[in-house]
Design a protein around this nucleic acid. Structure first.
Lengths: 342, 342
DNA sequence: GCCTCACATGGTAGCGCTACCATTTGTCTG
DNA sequence: CAGACAAATGGTAGCGCTACCATGTGAGGC
């Protein structure tokens, strides 16, 4: 004796209700929804009518359980408020908005351990794809990615050894390009100011250092960094520190645009002429860099495109295609502006 | 004849594997994990050992299907890159990071229709709670929220008629306070500059207007708005427009801080003295407002706290408590700075 | 005209977990 | 010391969906 259970609150319609109403088998409804091509025109119309009338929406949990695959993209980023990652995430959302895939974001707070924990959690859902920021996973995280059984895209950076696929650019080259530009503009005592100093910042620093060493101008006292999260106010403070340490500074390459803006404000307050006395270059090229006064030179990065491209590659892999390129370098663009126009 | 199916790729351990290894029933494992208090110390230890050894992680999909409730918080925001919502979302994430709840974010792109669509999708998952930005849902969206069968928190704003609970503040009062401050500082021809003009911006405008009318100084030509998304560069352009329309302008209340910063930059470029010739006030009080030069007056809003408070209220409701207050007003704080110190 | 085969549809048996009962054991009352 | 009752544990039956296989039908080949 099995009386129907009514655990479910509203008792929303199930696939069986649709099947009954349309006068077909449940499996045919399932197919009509997922592979319309395999169901005859007639039935498809009938089923669609029943779906509309009942307001049927498939239960993604039941679907995931039965098919051993959730229609979920797992996305791991180190920060939600940093505009850089927010843009990448926006690209991901926009690219998936018309697909059946949901998105699950994890915030690692720049912690490898937290990343590992989140990968464990995500893995238990059997996601359709994973997109993770960075290429410096812990060995444990890397192992989890490798046995995730789904396409994996590492974003933000390119490197030699992808877990599966990669979309990004070379932060080393970006840092070097900015420093070389400052050198070409005639600056000599060029400082590096950086906050947070995650692995990507470290590589931008390395690029800066390579350029300075090639010019025979490197001096460790030119470098001012902190692990503290980046902000405009921090940029001001770090610049004051840098200037105290090395009063003859005549240029700065900033880790990112927030810092650069802070430096600009501090110059203004201290009546230091930009670009005459000090040249400033930032990184990422946020919208405000081109409208600040003076406008600020920055390395434009293609953050939104990193998100859209990562999704495109993952979708292609899900569809069963081999990727043409496992590693996609989207490059960057140096935007020369007033702040370095000596 | 039922031979075991091995659809599942890696064949990761299930609750039955743990139960077998620990020598108990599956249901006891389930309980040990969810309600440890109801399982004896001994078994709990035994089960934990088996879980650790096998690396068992419960399948959230199966769990959701069986219990008719997914451990998911659905969050709907109009933008992912707008710092305001990014901060709210960060508060939500931080508050839930140690809980079993996952988070599912939906980006409505400021569209009521898209919000409705996303609520439909979210509803099909039977989330544990819903957090939605704003109080101006379409009738359809409101209906979906009402029959969601879970706690609902509307955030960012307070209003008279919550679906369930609310956390935010009065944008009308915020706008009025900013305008009154400019009036007190001695400005008279105070413009309103706004981009995007979502419902919250509209109410800030209404607050500004109320203050100006009370002072007998309102003039529709003082208002410059656009539906275009907000940005620093847009702030510059809108300010130019405003000035062209009304050259005697001596103050501006900006919809948000990006716009305010754009106005400041434009003043600098056009050699307009701030605060002597023009007073500037922004909204939200982003970090950079206090370090810009001159620093910019702004209305500080408690965005992160909106996120944390919303989660706290939802968790309390999930735990079965009646909320002490259905409507929580977190207020705001006027930060007086150099840009309005005439 | 029979066989093959593709195509359309359906039935059955779970996916991994938990709700709902049962059952067992120990503890407390009168 | 019987009866009542709480605490601890387990069995059974699904949650709503899809993978797998079976069946029926008509077109095409020989």
């Amino acid at each position: 004796m099995t009386r129907p259970r009514s655990r479910r609150g509203g008792g929303r319609p199930t696939i069986a209700d649709v099947a009954r109403k349309a006068g077909v088998g449940a499996i045919t409804v399932s197919r009509a929804l997922r592979e319309p091509g395999r169901v005859s025109e007639d039935l498809r119309r009938q089923i669609q009518a029943a779906v509309d009338e009942l307001g049927y929406v498939p239960d993604p949990n039941a679907r995931a359980l039965a098919s051993a695959r959730a229609e979920v993209f797992g996305v791991l980023v180190p920060s939600l408020t940093n505009n850089v990652f927010a843009e990448v995430v926006r690209g991901i959302y926009d690219s998936l908005s018309d697909s059946p895939f949901r998105i699950q974001i994890g915030n690692t707070h720049y912690s490898g351990l937290e990343e590992e924990r989140l990968l464990q959690v995500f893995g238990s859902q059997r996601p359709a794809a994973l997109i993770v920021a960075g290429i410096d996973q812990t060995p444990g995280a890397r192992r989890l990615l490798e046995k995730a059984g789904c396409p994996v895209v590492q974003v933000m950076e390119t490197g030699p050894d992808p877990v599966d696929m990669m979309v990004g650019f070379s932060h080393f080259d970006g840092g070097r390009t900015a420093a070389e530009h400052l050198l070409e503009a005639g600056y000599r005592k060029i400082g590096f100011i950086g906050a947070r100093m995650d692995p990507r910042s470290q590589r931008r620093l390395a690029g800066y250092r390579a350029a300075m060493e090639a010019a025979g101008l490197f001096d460790p006292r030119l470098i001012t960094t902190t692990p503290v999260p980046s902000s405009v106010s921090l940029g001001r403070e770090l610049f004051r520190d840098a200037l105290a340490k090395m009063p003859t500074l005549d240029g700065v390459f900033c880790n990112n645009d927030d810092i650069a803006l802070g430096v600009l404000f501090e110059c203004r307050r201290a009546s230091i002429d930009v670009p005459k006395q000090i040249g400033i270059a930032g990184f990422n090229d946020l919208d405000m860099m081109q409208v600040s006064f003076p406008s600020i030179t920055s390395v434009r990065t293609h953050r939104y495109e990193i998100g859209t491209r990562a999704v495109a590659m993952a979708l292609s892999a899900i569809a069963g295609n081999r990727p043409e390129q496992r590693i996609v370098d989207l490059g960057f663009e140096l935007m020369r502006r007033e702040s370095t126009a000596r």
